[in-house]
Amino acid sequence: MDLKQSNKILKQFAEIVKKQQAVRPISPKEKLKVGIDLGTSSIVLAVLDHDDVPLYGAFQYADVVRDGIVVNYIDSVKIVKKLKLQAEEKLGIELTSACGAIPPGTGETAQKVVANVINDAGFLAHTIIDEPTAAARFLKLEEGSVVDIGGGTTGISNFKNGKEIAVFDEPTGGYHMSLVLSGAKKIPLAEAEILKRETSDEREIFGIIRPVAEKMASIAKQYVVLNEAAPILLVGGATNFEDFVPTFSKVMDHPVLRPEYPQFVTPLGIAMFD
């Protein structure tokens, strides 16, 4: 694992998403890789070249998934189709296949639904994998654990000698942070979700949702392999709070690392499987 190199790629991808432009002209003969990350709060599309170099990326906030399960099929398809068309316009090439992902343990039905969303949006769904495994693929993790905190679930994958040895999933994530924030502030859930992203009030907000983060850390501690030589990596947009890593490290009593732009780790890993 080379976290410095991973952070460099993540920073580049974040700039690509911000600019909404392809990084270079694309040949019609090029074989591109596409990843679709259907998240609880957003849908991310990532496009890589044959060597896994990011070429294009985009996302749209969405409320179509709950606890890792697609609950609004029609809107999911509409958003993915929209992101596909935008990407094809910027790249000047048709995108034919894509990979998707699901939280571990959500079952064959969830896998089929994600594949159907991708297919109905105009792609050929190539592979559906579990999210923490996708994150580990991007991070080139040979040994250690990935804790992928999504909107509705927390997925944990353990690796040894480059192989996944165990994978787990628990129903707690960013959505549950929003629920706590909504109750504390006495505001609608949709407003709490927006407020959660406000960096100007980050310390106050994290103070309210800290118990949720501590619960996530307690859950992860049950499943990860605690070994000084094996890193624990946090990914997922819900981990963006400044105090998230120290809180996790304290509860787990083990050093925890978080890549830059953790919300883009899994989408890039998903695309690498296409």
Results as ranks from 00 to 15, higher is better:
residue 1 M to L: 13
residue 3 L to T: 06
residue 4 K to V: 09
residue 6 S to Y: 03
residue 9 I to P: 03
residue 9 I to D: 02
residue 11 K to Q: 14
residue 13 F to N: 00
residue 20 Q to L: 10
residue 20 Q to T: 05
residue 21 Q to R: 14
residue 22 A to M: 01
residue 23 V to A: 12
residue 24 R to A: 10
residue 27 S to M: 08
residue 28 P to R: 10
residue 28 P to S: 11
residue 31 K to Q: 13
residue 31 K to M: 11
residue 31 K to I: 07
residue 35 G to A: 08
residue 37 D to I: 03
residue 37 D to P: 02
residue 41 S to N: 14
residue 45 L to N: 05
residue 47 V to D: 00
residue 47 V to K: 05
residue 48 L to P: 11
residue 51 D to L: 14
residue 52 D to G: 09
residue 53 V to S: 12
residue 55 L to V: 01
residue 57 G to S: 09
residue 57 G to M: 12
residue 60 Q to E: 15
residue 65 V to G: 01
residue 67 D to T: 11
residue 69 I to H: 12
residue 72 N to W: 02
residue 73 Y to P: 08
residue 75 D to Y: 11
residue 77 V to H: 06
residue 79 I to M: 08
residue 81 K to G: 10
residue 82 K to R: 14
residue 83 L to D: 08
residue 90 K to P: 01
residue 96 T to G: 12
residue 96 T to Q: 15
residue 108 E to Y: 14
residue 111 Q to H: 14
residue 113 V to L: 00
residue 116 N to Q: 15
residue 117 V to I: 13
residue 118 I to Q: 04
residue 119 N to L: 08
residue 122 G to P: 00
residue 125 A to G: 03
residue 125 A to L: 03
residue 129 I to G: 01
residue 130 D to V: 13
residue 132 P to D: 00
residue 133 T to N: 06
residue 133 T to L: 10
residue 139 L to M: 13
residue 139 L to E: 02
residue 140 K to S: 14
residue 141 L to S: 04
residue 142 E to A: 12
residue 142 E to I: 09
residue 148 D to H: 04
residue 148 D to N: 09
residue 149 I to N: 02
residue 151 G to Q: 05
residue 151 G to Y: 02
residue 155 G to H: 02
residue 155 G to M: 04
residue 157 S to H: 03
residue 160 K to I: 07
residue 162 G to Y: 12
residue 163 K to C: 08
residue 164 E to A: 09
residue 165 I to G: 04
residue 165 I to H: 06
residue 165 I to C: 08
residue 166 A to I: 03
residue 167 V to T: 14
residue 169 D to T: 10
residue 169 D to C: 15
residue 170 E to K: 09
residue 172 T to V: 15
residue 173 G to H: 04
residue 174 G to E: 01
residue 175 Y to K: 07
residue 177 M to H: 05
residue 180 V to W: 04
residue 180 V to H: 03
residue 181 L to Q: 06
residue 182 S to T: 07
residue 184 A to W: 10
residue 184 A to L: 08
residue 185 K to P: 01
residue 185 K to V: 02
residue 189 L to C: 02
residue 190 A to I: 13
residue 190 A to D: 15
residue 192 A to R: 05
residue 193 E to G: 05
residue 194 I to T: 09
residue 198 E to F: 10
residue 200 S to V: 13
residue 200 S to Y: 11
residue 202 E to Q: 14
residue 204 E to H: 12
residue 205 I to L: 13
residue 206 F to L: 06
residue 207 G to M: 07
residue 208 I to Q: 06
residue 211 P to V: 00
residue 213 A to V: 12
residue 214 E to L: 07
residue 217 A to F: 08
residue 220 A to R: 06
residue 224 V to H: 00
residue 224 V to I: 14
residue 225 V to F: 11
residue 227 N to S: 15
residue 228 E to M: 11
residue 229 A to L: 13
residue 229 A to Y: 13
residue 231 P to R: 10
residue 231 P to L: 04
residue 235 V to P: 00
residue 236 G to P: 02
residue 237 G to D: 00
residue 238 A to N: 05
residue 239 T to N: 08
residue 240 N to V: 13
residue 244 F to H: 07
residue 247 T to N: 06
residue 248 F to K: 08
residue 248 F to W: 11
residue 259 P to W: 01
residue 260 E to G: 03
residue 260 E to H: 06
residue 260 E to N: 10
residue 263 Q to E: 12
residue 264 F to L: 07
residue 265 V to E: 03
residue 267 P to N: 03
residue 268 L to G: 00
residue 269 G to K: 05
residue 269 G to N: 07
residue 271 A to H: 06
residue 274 D to W: 08
residue 274 D to L: 05
